[in-house]
Design a protein around this nucleic acid. Structure first.
Length: 506
RNA sequence: GGUCCGUUCGUCUAGGGGUCUAGGACGCCGGCCUCUCACGCCGGUAACACGGGUUCAAAUCCCGUACGGAUCACCA
């Protein structure tokens, strides 16, 4: 049997290094077995999925040097590779389960479920989940409700007792009691499948043999195994990889650590170094060599060499490794070439030059601007932020407010950034001029520079977030307590804003 | 809180009953090289979470505890 693995990102945000990490291991495993690696887009969440995000994920993954044998951009024999284009397949399969009596229709309202949830929480029994209410509906009642076009979902039937044995490639057999497994919604009321249904149906139809994914899925593995069994399909081999962590050991998240592949690209990390570093996460070469190419990794890959403790993503060590790649794998011509591609490429130049042209009296004036367009982090000190009217706490607050507000932004472009930040100024009752003052040193290292919003747009979301965080740090940072207090005010403002928005759209 | 997964230097890791006085790498510290810095080279710092068992012998196997993480959605 041909080994087939896949990575299945959801296009709901910036391309995440965690996606590249999971993709890398799937890729190596497949290639080591002379198999195929597939890219599938899981965009069943219509609310959050965007095609821009999908394009960025594809581009970023390609940038790392990973390639896929089948995918939405390259096609393949098991397509389409976008779940939103596989539409009816899921509804058909939900119907199959309904017919087999392995699933049931549930007409419960979200109000009832919320109430149920609250009750379960307060009773403190520790048992949460659907109570099986609609399981007792008679066929007549169901036909009646269907005729009345009541909205409903389809849920999976799950045994009430016994244990599910999950076989994981890296661990001993994992036992999870069926009573712990919720009667998962398979088909949402909008007719779209949930992850669980779509994932199982697609993995089966795409003939995936090994599911290598993050550890966060262990607890829902029984649902998946149940589905395979209900369909009468053979389940793939499961393998759960340890999660990448923040320095505080929590799951890697953008609030605490830059997670976007764009960010690493922007600070000048070489794709081969990033992939190399990700390969060192939870895995090591048999000879313990730290630096290796993708081909070398495939050649020596052995999934048993994965260690299970969750590795902390250490930017410092990545930087060291990147330095080795720069020094050891490039002569001067090659390095010049890399630099041209990275910084002096027409795309970046064309983005930046319109801002620069009015400010250039001599070509050499480019030097002071390139300092912040080409830098990763800036060297800042508190004096740069001194303001004649505002206290350093106010300045800090402005930066933090901006950082939070910017995180809510769906699209990253100058106008949206401008609007969002202007709203912050209003909320903090500061004149725009005063509010924006600290953003110049934070983003550019200078009191005045190119237009803030265009500059931020070019620098990208993660680098901007990182620089704002640096600046806040220089101003003394935010204590846990202080953050909680600010957060409360911020959230109140946010709520008001959203309500206003809702009114406007109505 | 329930369930599940994990735990070797600050960090990434090697090791999977004796070869462990626990090895390598990042970081940090010191030195060499050198017009400076960096690179490079040399050296130092620092860990088997804890308690019981099994065994002639435990970092390694078993049990418990502690700690960390994940998960408990009509999100993936």
């Amino acid at each position: 049997m041909k080994v087939r693995t896949r990575v299945a990102p959801s296009p709901t945000g910036d391309p995440h290094v965690g996606t590249a990490y999971i993709a890398l291991f799937n890729y190596c495993f497949a290639k080591q077995h002379d198999g195929q690696f597939i890219l599938r887009i899981e965009d069943t969440d219509r609310e959050r999925s965007t095609s821009e995000s999908e394009a960025q994920i594809l581009n970023s993954l390609k940038w790392t040097g990973l390639t896929w044998d089948e995918g939405p951009d390259v096609g393949g024999t098991h397509g389409p590779y976008r779940q939103s284009e596989r539409g009816d397949l899921y509804a058909e399969h939900a119907q199959i389960l309904l017919d087999k009596g392995e699933a049931f229709r549930c007409f419960c309202t979200s109000e009832r479920l919320d109430a149920l949830r609250k009750e379960q929480m307060s009773s403190g029994a520790g048992k949460l989940g659907y109570d099986g209410h609609c399981l007792s509906l008679s066929p007549d009642e169901i036909t009646q409700k269907l005729a009345a076009q009541e909205t409903h979902v389809v849920r999976l039937k799950v045994p009430r007792d016994g244990v599910c044995k999950v076989t994981d490639l890296l661990r001993d057999e994992i036992e999870i009691a069926w009573s712990e497994v919720d009667m998962q919604v398979l088909l949402k009321s909008d007719g779209m499948p949930t992850y669980h249904l779509a994932n199982v149906v697609d993995d089966h139809h795409m003939e995936i043999t090994h599911v290598i994914r993050g550890e966060e899925w262990i607890n829902s593995a029984p649902k998946h195994l149940r589905l395979y069994e209900a369909f009468g399909w053979e389940a793939p081999i499961l393998c759960h990889l340890p999660l990448l962590r923040n320095p505080d050991k929590s799951k890697l998240s953008k609030r605490k650590n830059p997670t976007s592949i764009h960010y690493y690209q922007k600070i000048g990390v070489l794709p081969e170094a990033l992939l190399n570093y990700l390969g060192r996460m939870a895995w090591s070469m048999p000879n313990e060599e730290e630096k290796f190419s993708l081909d070398e990794m495939i050649e020596h890959f052995n999934i048993d060499r994965i260690s299970l403790g969750g590795p902390i993503f250490d930017v410092e060590k990545l930087t060291w490794l990147n330095g080795r790649w720069i020094r050891e794998n490039h002569d001067i011509d090659q390095l010049a070439q890399r630099l041209m591609e990275w910084a002096l490429n027409p795309k970046l130049l064309k983005e930046v030059l319109p801002m620069l042209q009015p400010r250039l009296d001599r070509l050499s004036d480019i030097g002071k601007f390139s300092s912040y367009f080409l830098s990763g982090h800036l060297e800042l000190n508190a004096e740069q932020f001194a303001h004649k009217k505002l206290s350093s706490e106010q300045i800090n607050q402005a930066l933090v407010w901006g950082m939070w507000r910017l995180d809510e932004l769906k699209a990253w472009e100058a106008e949206g950034i401008s609007n969002a930040l202007r709203e912050c100024a209003v909320e903090l009752e500061l004149k725009p001029r005063d509010f924006f003052a600290p953003f110049y040193p934070a983003i550019t290292g200078m009191k005045s520079a190119t237009p803030l919003f265009d500059t931020m747009a070019v620098l990208g979301r993660d680098l901007v977030r990182a620089r704002l965080r640096d600046a806040s740090q220089v101003l003394g940072g935010v204590s846990k307590k202080g953050e909680a207090r600010w957060k409360k005010t911020y959230e109140a403002g946010r709520k008001q804003r959203l309500e206003q928005q809702a009114q406007e759209t109505n």
